[in-house]
Amino acid sequence: MDFDFLGETFVRLLSGIPLTLELAFSSVGLGIVLAVALALMLRARFLPLGWFADAFVFVFRGTPLLVQLFLIYYGLGQFRPELQEMGLWWFFRAPYYCALLALTLNTAAYGAEIVRGGLQSVPAGQIEAARAFGMSGFTLYRRIVAPIALRQALPAYGNEIILMIKATSLASTITIMEVTGLAHKLISETFRSFEVFFAAGAIYLIVNFAVTRLIWLAEHRIAPDLTLAERTAELH
């Protein structure tokens, strides 16, 4: 292996990290909001809302992210006049927003299931007890349901963040030059797939390791009574 080339490659790929992280964190952040909305819709008594949420989760979990990305980017690109009329074209014109949209919708569908699992884990007795104390509606959610569900959902969500960091690599297929996009360009210029893979792989591993640690710290603050071992077991 040529270490000079490896070092050069590593440095060139580093410049893609901000874009990778930006895409991952923005999509997870926006995705959580959407996921909570979807999870509440799934529990709604008004059936059409539940059907919509069901269909959304079914389609986005049942098809590859790459297909969703191409459908949004190339597929909707075909409808420029219509989108322009609706005043949405500025959004779909930018590859970055298309990638962000695809990633957000995708993670929202998976997140909805995580949040639903968290909500289901809230013991019925706790809710009954709270009701007996006169709590209801928003207060019940804020003080009882949300904290318990959040604690339960956090480890799974930590996993989702790592999956999304990996998923941002697909954005490179629609001209976005994040780490994988830069790696692809370097390979097709130099034909040295090993070194480039080595450098890019190392970058992702380092980033993922750092993010995993941060998530552990966050969990520890939110749920200090869960032992580290328990949390590790849940992550696997």
Binding site: Y74, G77, Q78, R80, W89, R93, P95, T173, T175, K185
Partner: peptide, 18 residues
């Protein structure tokens, strides 16, 4: 400058005004 894997892809993006 944006880089595309195929010319068909950049043609689609030109038509779309991207």
């Amino acid at each position: 400058i944006r880089e595309y894997k195929t010319t068909e892809q950049h043609d689609l993006d030109l038509a779309a005004g991207r």
